[in-house]
Amino acid sequence: MEMSSGTKIAGVVSMVIVTSVLALAIAAGGLGYVIPPPHLRSLADWYLKTALNPYLKYFTVNSPEAVTSIVWDYRGLDTLFETTVFFLAIIGSIALMRGIHIDVKELKECCPTGMSPIVKTVTRVTVGMILAVSASIALHGHLTPGGGFQGGATAAVAPLLVMVVFSLYFVSKHGLSEEKMLTLRTAGLLGIAFTAFAALIIGYAFSTHAYVFQNQPKAEAPVGLPAYMFNALTSGTLIFFNLFEFFAVAAGFTIVFLLLSIPEVIVKKHSGVSEE
């Protein structure tokens, strides 16, 4: 049953009033809710003091960006498992579309049109800008806000935009295929795993102690990745994590969109569902 516009407006107004009254009551100190004090807590203070501090050699991450150093160093294992969840979802969508493949000839017969020439030209100009912005977000992840996931999600919009504006046929004709993206994604994941074990391998080679997910030297484990490379601050493992996560996330999203944008006719033909 379609809701009338009067009912909708009444719903909106009542929700706004209820929320405002609740917020005012809490702000005035009612309802037993205690608003946390606005001053800096000791944990945040610790992160801010150790994120970039060359004098505390065994505690620092050597990265001026506190968020990225928390995400990939202080709680690196947590981020690893979050990434695993994301890639399990992508594996699930690939498994759902099994048996359906992208065939350039079939696509050419089906729908190779795309949108108007103005949109095509503008998209041609913007795709380069999108990739530049995403690379900047990902590779400066340890210096400015941003990081691997942010950069990857940004970069994934570029092939998606080309797919929507120029058609899937154009994309697959120019060599963007599901297998290539899977390879890129796997390479990114392997890179993340290798970076996680890098300190352990170095420690084994020099026969000292080392930890998984170790970035800078710690007490009892004096190995670590260099904080400065070619006179630039690279923050040890952080830049590698960001770089590999960037490729893995961008390729993962692109696989999903490649599979989703296959025309319905071809999907039905490949999966053996007859037309109604």
């Binding site: 949108m115 797919m163 296959i262 025309p263």
Partner: peptide
């Protein structure tokens, strides 16, 4: 709005 398929 314009076309029959999003990827077309």
């Amino acid at each position: 709005l314009e076309s029959k398929e999003m990827g077309g």
